[in-house]
């Protein structure tokens, strides 16, 4: 039994660390898709966030000192939010196919980031950052037996932020007028329009929020996991966040739960060789678990996962 607890003390913090960037990005996806705009571009937006986070950190570490990682997350949020405007303009105003536009965002994100890295550093990846996201011991809570060491000892500050954002997103989407409007333009834009809601404006705001959150997710991942930026820094995390959003049924808290579960699967995959009972399970099963589960969830075997009704349709005033 003691051994089992030790494993949990070891694996749960890693799971949460892996989950945090997914939570940010998946919540971003919730905002965009709840407004009716498919956002396959989360991966590209995360790449941009990771790139900006690392480069900002490297350039301004002398100015901001210990605060650098946090300011870097902020910078990543801003740049990715602006970058996501491209997706918004294409899919909302220009009525482009939202999936194609998202694919373009993904290709563009990694291309721009690597182009700039090679321009600035003359090589394929950046230097390593010195100021990383700090870990905290949460006072009092860390003294709780069993749960304390698992959840509240040396947690990344960003993980706490991620959970706070998930709760905030739930509040915004379900308890504020803006959230009601957001959900209504995603379900029935024409009805929303007749009630005086500016459908396209709400969608623009939603896509920009998703860009900002995906940027934060990327910056958090880069500043906790890799500490530099290269071509493989963000390698599918954006799509995994997309999966978490669907698995969480387009609900912020559900998305957070799914992200935590996927983080757990990732943590198991990388450390299964060191765990008794697990060492004989080929890690490939754990790697494909999140993706396979998402397909199963979509197929309706784990409750029905239904997206917003107007997802993917550009709103054309006057058309029925």
């Amino acid at each position: 039994m003691g051994g089992f607890l030790d494993i949990l003390y070891f694996i749960v913090p890693i799971s949460i660390a892996y989950a945090a960037p997914l939570i940010f990005t998946a919540i971003g996806g919730v905002f965009s898709e709840r407004s009716g705009v498919i956002n396959i571009g989360l991966e590209g937006l995360m790449v941009m966030g990771a790139f900006v986070g690392i480069v900002f950190n490297l350039f301004f570490v002398d100015t901001f000192g210990a605060w650098t990682p946090w300011v870097s997350i902020l910078a990543a949020m801003l740049v990715s939010a602006i970058f996501s405007l491209m997706h918004a303009v294409a899919s909302i105003t220009f009525r482009a196919d939202q999936v194609v536009s998202g694919v373009a965002i993904n290709l563009l994100g990694i291309a721009i980031a690597l182009f700039l890295v090679k321009m600035i550093y003359g090589k394929g990846q950046t230097d390593f950052i010195q100021e990383k996201i700090p870990r905290f011991n949460i006072p009092f809570l860390q003294d709780i037996p069993v749960l304390g060491p698992m959840f509240f000892k040396s947690v990344y500050g960003s993980s706490i932020l991620a959970i706070a954002i998930a709760i905030l997103a739930w509040f915004i989407i379900y308890k504020t007028p803006f959230g009601l409007r957001l959900r209504s333009v995603g379900e029935h834009p024409m009805a929303a329009d007749t009630m005086g809601i500016k459908v396209n404006r709400i969608r623009y705001i939603a896509v920009i929020i998703s860009g900002g959150l995906a940027g934060m997710g990327g910056a958090v991942y880069a500043q906790t996991m890799t500490n530099d930026f290269g071509h493989a820094t963000i390698n599918g995390q954006g799509f995994m966040a997309l999966a978490a959003m669907i698995f969480g049924k387009w609900h912020p808290i559900g998305a957070m739960g799914a992200a935590l579960f996927f983080g757990f699967a990732q943590a198991l995959a990388i450390s299964s060789s060191g765990i008794p009972f697990m060492e004989n399970v080929p890690s490939v099963y754990l790697y494909i678990l999140p993706y396979a589960l998402t397909i199963i969830a979509l197929a309706g075997f784990i409750g029905k996962a239904n997206g917003p009704k107007a997802l993917g349709d550009p709103y054309v005033k006057g058309s029925r």
Binding site: F94, S101, A104, I105, L107, L108, K118
Partner: peptide, 22 residues
Amino acid sequence: IPIEIVSIVIALIIFFVASGYI
């Protein structure tokens, strides 16, 4: 010039074709 410039061009072409409506 970094090779990625061509990936940028390709991504932009997709983007413009997708925005064919405008």
